[in-house]
């Protein structure tokens, strides 16, 4: 008989691996990718291809030639970053802007901090904010390219619902007047079909489908998304009730501006979100609150990315002070 293997207990392992978790996130993103390809056609395909390929190749090159460590692109985390980055950009973003975004996401945000699990900020969100600040014109060019399905209308050709509303409010209109002027801003329209905005926001339903998949596969717990969406709903609801002539309603706020994409896929990023349940609730509420505040009172029409980024910075603190409930604690 050959030599026996000896190790400390436990002697079995669940089949959970980092790779499987990341693969599940990719699968969950699949409906959103599909809708965005169908709505925006070749532009969306190019966007996703450039995003994923550049992220994966950059991670490989950095690990192989600069850091000279084991290459871990197999864990699919770079691919997830690539897809998320692509879905967070306007469908018409030029390929070189996407590439710069990948350099920021992988090269600066992820690898300089030590690779997977070590970064403080969400790579895709940071890259998006970096691009938004660096290329404001390109990043707010919401021109809708020709897609394979032509649901919806081009009535608002190129502007996101939030920017339409923001511009409208500036000129003194009430939200109600804006909505009557733009019939495409109805909730039904936003739930099912293309609305102006990032590639990933084409359909809220596709994102919710992905959310359900993540919950079923137990990749994430519903805590953070529910906290984010709930807070956006409640806070914008309060503002709406106080003054419906200058603030938009809660449902509109949830369905636009990447709240769903951010709450489901970006805020729940393992690495940059708190680990305990209580921490996750505080984190989610923080994102929701900041999002609404930036939207209603800030210069930018939308604030999910900034809110997530700000709350990312708070995560180490939350991890330190919001500890899980302990068994038998007095």
């Amino acid at each position: 008989m050959r030599n026996l293997i000896i190790s400390p207990s436990p002697h079995i392992h669940s089949d959970l691996t980092t790779r499987r978790l990341m693969r599940d996130v990719l699968i969950a993103l699949f409906p959103a990718m599909l809708v965005s390809i169908l709505s925006y056609g070749f532009s969306a395909v190019r966007l996703l291809m450039v995003g994923v390929l550049s992220c994966v190749i950059l991670e490989y090159l950095i690990q192989k030639f600069i850091l000279k460590t084991a290459v871990t692109v197999n864990d699919c985390s770079a691919a997830v970053t690539g897809v998320l980055l692509a879905l967070n950009l306007p469908p018409c973003t030029p390929w070189w802007v996407v590439f710069i975004g990948s350099i920021v996401a992988i090269g600066i945000v992820k690898m300089t901090f030590g690779g997977l699990g070590q970064n403080i900020f969400n790579p895709a969100i940071t890259a998006r904010v970096f691009l938004l600040v660096s290329f404001p014109v390109i990043m707010t060019d919401w021109t809708i390219p020709q897609g394979w399905i032509s649901a919806g209308t081009d009535a608002f050709s190129g502007a996101t619902p939030l920017s339409i509303v923001k511009e409208g409010l500036k000129t003194g209109l009430t939200p109600e007047q804006i909505f009557t002027a733009h019939p495409s801003l109805s909730c039904g329209q936003m739930l099912f079909a293309r609305i102006g905005g990032s590639a990933g926001e084409a359909s809220a339903l596709a994102l919710i489908l992905g959310f359900i998949y993540l919950l079923v596969r137990k990749v994430i717990k519903p805590t953070i998304p529910v906290a984010v969406i709930g807070t956006v709903f409640v806070v914008s609801g309060i503002f709406y009730l106080i003054d419906s002539s200058s603030f938009t309603g809660p449902v509109f706020n949830i369905l636009t501006g990447g709240v769903l994409l951010g709450a489901i896929f970006m805020a729940t990023d393992y690495v940059t979100s708190p680990m305990s349940c209580s921490g996750q609730i505080v984190y989610g509420i923080g994102i929701g609150l900041l999002t609404v505040l930036i939207r209603f009172f800030g210069a930018y029409p939308e604030g999910v990315s900034f809110a997530i980024l700000i709350m990312n910075a708070v995560v180490p603190l939350l991890n330190k002070y919001m500890r899980p409930a302990r068994f038998g604690a007095k």
């Binding site: 030599n3 026996l4 293997i5 000896i6 190790s7 400390p8």
Partner: peptide
């Protein structure tokens, strides 16, 4: 000669506590 294969953490302390 080795008589078993250790498959735990590479730490003498852990290994010594085990066997």
């Amino acid at each position: 000669p080795r008589t078993s294969v250790y498959d735990g953490t590479a730490s003498c302390k852990v290994k010594n506590a085990l066997y």
